[in-house]
Structures are given as structure tokens and as C-alpha cells.
Design a protein around this nucleic acid. Structure first.
Length: 553
RNA sequence: UGUCCUAUGGUGUAAUGGUAACACUGCAGAUUUUGAUUCUGCCUUUCUAGGUUCGAAUCCUAGUAGGACAACCA
């Protein structure tokens, strides 16, 4: 019955720690730097950190890692909070690393007093040089042996603004011969005469990540500090600070970051696309950001499902974008109301339907959800169908409309194509059809059996809207494998706008929250660019299309 | 020519010394007033070589492959 799902390695660690009594309850944190918008990779981390606390009854803090005033902005703070909330998670506390600047400063002083930190006047080039290489150990410089008193004095002066950016740094005195480069006297404080989004001009020295993150974890009593694999070599330093500062022993654990085919998952690269105009902002529906996916029509549930399905482990991975699409389709199929929309119209005249007459035909809103009810569709003598749903010379197994053939108009009548009208250039302009009055949906007594069912809209009743179709942002599967500039692989056709699409009148009532399935086409939602006289719809994802697949062969 | 991490179908993830499984993808079929959904079936897997063991995907050793690390970024 209630089958137990196997645990990922982090859940195992937590369960072990809880069982052994090491912790009574756990505390995790999601620690974004407010220098960009959150993306799908962050969603994985959010689901993990909040998910762990939810599953084992603990707490999760939202902590902004804002130690670099040059790149961080309040706009990003707000977007991050919106995205986490939208994903469905509530943080226990909202904290900022900058809340701890005073605390962190004292930690630095404590280290100096223990003879474990020193002020270095070297340039960054000199420091890099003196660090050696992974295979060659570093060499100490003269500043390394400064007295505690002098270091205290100098560090105070750094804080007081006596020096210019880059003139001096504070370094931890660890081990210049370590095989771990991060242990070779890492810089822990640097001078930046910059305005901070929260602390303003209070500080002109700022702690480095390594001197802020672990200590912030300790201050908040974070039990399990979960980060991505590239921080594995930082762990030794993380533990060194805990030991030498004698603070709360948070533990760092690392998992493999998310990679998805045909896209990039790096804030730096996404920012570049935004800045260089390759996309229209962070929430351009082609972006892998949370805000873009929300705008495109993805549901929070589908993203959570995706994060659950991809699992958590320590090996490099590349997830097929198809899995994400599967997750949205699965969710949207249950909740999206169905609508009839014609994006590539072919006019159909029902010659035996009275001119000027129209009738309202009911159609189910969602066959997957009996509670969703139905709506009425206007039917009349002149209709639009998709050009794809007619073939003058049908291929084998084509069971839509063709000269002399019949199809069912969904929720309406069976029609038969009698005549094909073309313009002088030979282009199809119109189909002349007759309908079978006894074949009305729900009361069909015609006895006819047709294999094909197509969608349609009434020409005089149709609304005109704009439709935006999105394709993958990049043309190659694995962006991590390429050597050249990633922008060389941008898909120039990732956005396709259809300015005039005919939709059933019911869609005039669409709101930003609604999700629709345009029958036989895909899932769509209203875009925020919509105005009262011009609705814009985004395609979230297409429907699976076995016919299209078969056509390719 | 250092240290660390990782290695299971096409892609992910399980199996915790005892018959290698689940999802996605792909393929075939059934149902269908969406060529959708749903349902059924099928394809395909333990990096290599040694060792420990009655028994190894799992433990050990070596190799190979991939990744991370030398920002006053996080």
C-alpha cells in the first residue's frame, strides 16, 4: 500500500541526524545573492531546502547573500521573494548577510587577535602570484608576519575609510602550502567604497563569501547548509572558520546543480542575454527564469513536480527539457479549460446552412474535469478551420478534410467538402461544404461514422488576438560542452509571433491567471502585454503530436 | 601533471552484500467527438581490470573517463 519512496542522500543524512539525536529539529536556508532573477536551478535548490524542512518539520530561512554591493539591487530582492512565494514556499525568517556585518567584523577582529588573520598590502596580481598553483605551493610575503597590534590598527583604518579600494585586504592566515587553493590564506575582507542596497554608506569594507556564508549559517543555527558541488573545496575553509571562531557547527553538504538541454542555467549568462537585448527582459517567456516560466504559463505545481522527478545526487547531469514539458502537460491537462482557436485560417462556407442564421452549441470545458461544465460556441454559415486540416490530395491515413470527404466539427456537425475555391494564382481561398443536420453533437442520429474531428470557429463571431509561440532558446543540447561563445548557438527563431489569430468569443473573458488548452494545438495563457483591444496569448507548450511525428517519417 | 568529487538503459533516479527497478524518451497496439488524455506491451543498463566474499552495482586496490579548484564574484 503506502509504498515508501526511497530517500535521496540528503534525506538520509537528515534522518540519520534526527534518529541519532544530533538534532531535535533541522534548520535549512535558501541563500540567493540578489544580483539577478531566480531560475530553474534555483527552483531545485528551493524545493530541496524548503522540502527538507517541510518533510522533517523544521525551519527554512530566506537569506540574501548580499556581501557585494556592486552587483546587488533591491529589484532583485523583490523578484526573488515573489518567485519563492509563487513556488509555494514560506520562509521562517527573512534575513540578510548584511544584517550580520557588525558581527562579521567582530569575527574578523577575533581572528586577528588569535594571530589568524593579517592585513596584506599586496595587489591582487601579487597575491595571485604568491598563491602558487594547484601543483606548486604558495610563498609567504612580508605582510604575513605583521604583529597583531599592527593588524588591528590597520584593519580599523580600513574600516574607517583611510584606504582606497584595493589598497589593502584582510586575509586569513591558514596554510600557503595546502593542496586546497582555498586554504592558501584566503582574502576575507576587501575595501569597496560603494553604496550598499541595505546598509547604505555605513561600511566601506565588505566580507567575502567564504567569510560571510558559514558564519551566517552559524548565527542562524542552520543545521544543514546545502549548496552545489562547486563549493566542495570551500568546505574545508567553512569548517576552519567554525573551529577557529568556535561558533555553531553548521554542516555543509553539496549536490549537483541542475542542467537542462537547450538552455543555460547561469545568472551571468542570463544577465548577458538581457543586457544585450537577445531577450526582452528577465521574464521573457523563453528564459529559464521562474518569472519567465510563470509568465509563459507554467504552474508552480508543474515546476515542483519537475524538481521532484529529477532527483538529487552528486553526479553531473543534463535533464531533457522534455521532462519539464511532460510535467506541465500533466498538470495543465487536468486544469486547463479547452478553447477553439484557429491560427492559420481556411474559410469554410456551409452552403446548406441558412445565411444569417446562427446557433449556440455547448462544448465541454474540460473532459478531464466533469465539474468544469461547458460553454456555448456560436455556429454559423461561415467558419474558419486550420489549413492543416485540409488536404486537396490527402496522404494515406489522413482522416481530416479532403475533397469529397467528411469530418466532424468538434461539438458541432459532420461536414462534407464539395468544392475547392482558388484565386487566380492557384491559392486555396475557400472550401464549399455541406453539413449533416442530423449529426449534431449530443443528438447525432445520422448513423455516420467519421474518423476525423477538427476544431473550428465561426467567422462572424470570432475574436482576433495575437499569439506568441516559443521555441528553445539555443540550438545545441549541451551548452556546457561548447567551447565557443554560447551566444553563437542562440536560436534565432525562438520567438514566432502570429499577429492575427481567430478565437472563440468566450476568450474575451480570459484573465492572467487562466490556463487554456487550445484544442489540438497546445496550452496557452494570457500575456501581460494584453490590452483591452488586443489580447496576447503565450504558448506554454504544444500538445503531444503523434501525427506530426509520423509525417516526418 | 597536485588535491577533491563523480561513474547504473538514450536521459535522470533507485536498489544500502542476496532475482538490477521506476520515471521520461523511443517503438508497437487498444480506446477516443482533441491524431490530446487514458490504457497495454516492447526496446535498452551496472566504466575497465584485479581482489575480498557462498554471493558485489554495492566493499578494497589500480586504471580509465568526466567534473571542480589558482576572482579584492557568489
Amino acid at each position: 500500500m503506502a509504498e515508501e519512496k526511497s530517500l535521496n542522500f540528503l534525506e538520509e543524512i537528515v534522518e540519520t541526524d534526527l534518529k541519532s539525536g544530533k538534532y531535535q529539529s533541522i534548520c535549512t536556508r535558501f541563500p540567493p545573492e540578489p544580483n539577478g532573477y531566480l531560475h530553474l536551478g534555483h527552483a531545485k535548490s528551493i524545493c530541496l531546502n524548503f522540502g527538507l524542512a517541510l518533510k522533517y518539520g523544521g525551519k527554512t530561512n530566506l537569506r540574501f547573500d548580499d556581501t557585494n554591493p556592486i552587483t546587488e539591487e533591491t529589484e532583485y530582492v523583490e523578484s526573488i521573494k515573489d518567485d519563492v512565494r509563487w513556488l509555494g514556499f514560506n520562509w521562517t525568517n527573512e534575513f540578510y548577510a548584511s544584517d550580520y556585518f557588525g558581527h562579521l567584523y567582530e569575527f574578523a577582529v577575533a581572528l586577528i587577535k588569535k594571530g589568524l588573520a593579517y592585513v596584506d598590502d599586496s595587489t591582487s596580481e601579487e597575491i595571485a602570484m604568491q598563491k602558487g598553483t594547484p601543483t606548486k605551493s604558495g610563498t609567504p610575503n612580508a605582510y604575513r608576519s605583521r604583529s597583531i597590534e599592527e593588524n588591528l590598527q590597520l584593519f580599523t583604518e580600513m574600516k574607517e575609510g583611510k584606504y582606497k579600494d584595493g589598497e589593502k585586504v584582510l586575509r586569513a592566515k591558514v596554510d600557503l602550502a595546502s593542496t586546497n587553493m582555498h586554504m592558501r590564506d584566503p582574502i576575507i575582507y576587501r575595501i569597496k567604497h560603494a553604496h550598499h542596497h541595505r546598509t547604505g554608506d555605513t561600511w566601506c569594507i565588505y566580507p567575502m563569501y567564504d567569510f560571510a556564508h558559514g558564519q551566517s549559517d552559524a548565527i542562524e543555527n542552520i543545521t544543514h547548509s546545502i549548496c552545489t558541488l562547486e563549493f566542495v573545496p570551500h568546505r574545508e575553509l567553512y569548517d576552519w572558520f567554525i573551529a577557529n571562531l568556535a561558533i555553531y557547527p553548521s554542516r555543509q553538504y553539496e549536490f549537483a546543480r541542475l542542467n537542462v538541454t537547450y538552455t543555460v542555467m547561469s545568472k551571468r549568462k542570463l544577465l548577458q542575454l538581457v543586457n544585450e537585448g537577445d531577450v526582452n527582459g528577465w521574464d521573457d517567456p523563453r528564459m529559464p527564469t521562474i518569472s519567465a516560466m510563470r509568465r509563459r504559463g507554467y504552474t508552480a505545481e508543474s515546476i515542483r513536480q519537475f524538481c521532484d522527478k529529477i532527483g538529487v545526487a552528486k553526479r553531473e547531469n543534463l535533464i531533457d527539457i522534455g521532462l519539464l514539458e511532460f510535467c506541465v502537460r500533466e498538470d495543465l491537462n487536468k486544469l486547463a479549460q479547452r478553447r477553439m482557436v484557429i491560427s492559420n485560417p481556411l474559410k469554410v462556407v456551409i452552403t446548406n446552412y441558412p445565411d444569417g442564421k446562427s446557433e449556440m452549441l455547448p462544448s465541454e470545458n474540460n473532459p478531464e474535469d466533469p465539474m468544469s461544465g461547458s460553454r456555448n460556441l456560436p455556429f454559423s454559415r461561415e467558419l474558419y478551420i486550420e489549413q492543416d486540416d485540409f488536404m486537396e490530395v490527402p496522404v494515406k491515413k489522413y482522416f481530416r478534410l479532403a475533397p469529397g470527404q467528411m469530418v466532424r466539427l468538434k461539438s458541432a456537425y459532420i461536414i462534407k467538402c464539395n468544392e475547392v475555391i482558388k484565386d487566380t494564382a492557384g491559392n486555396l481561398t475557400e472550401l464549399r461544404c455541406t453539413y449533416v443536420p442530423e449529426s449534431k453533437s449530443g443528438s447525432d442520429i445520422s448513423g455516420l461514422v467519421v474518423k476525423g474531428v477538427i476544431h473550428w470557429v465561426s467567422r462572424p463571431h470570432a475574436l482576433e488576438v495575437e499569439m506568441r509561440l516559443y521555441d528553445r532558446l539555443f540550438k545545441v543540447e549541451d551548452l556546457n560542452k561548447i567551447e565557443a561563445d554560447f551566444k553563437n548557438y542562440l536560436n534565432k527563431d525562438s520567438l514566432h509571433v502570429i499577429p492575427k489569430v481567430y478565437v472563440e468569443p468566450e476568450l474575451a473573458n480570459a484573465t492572467l491567471e487562466d490556463r487554456f488548452q487550445f484544442i489540438r494545438t497546445g496550452y496557452f495563457c494570457l500575456d501581460k502585454d494584453s490590452t483591452s483591444d488586443k489580447l496576447v496569448f503565450n504558448r506554454t507548450v504544444t500538445l503531444r503530436d503523434m501525427w506530426a511525428k509520423e509525417q516526418k517519417r
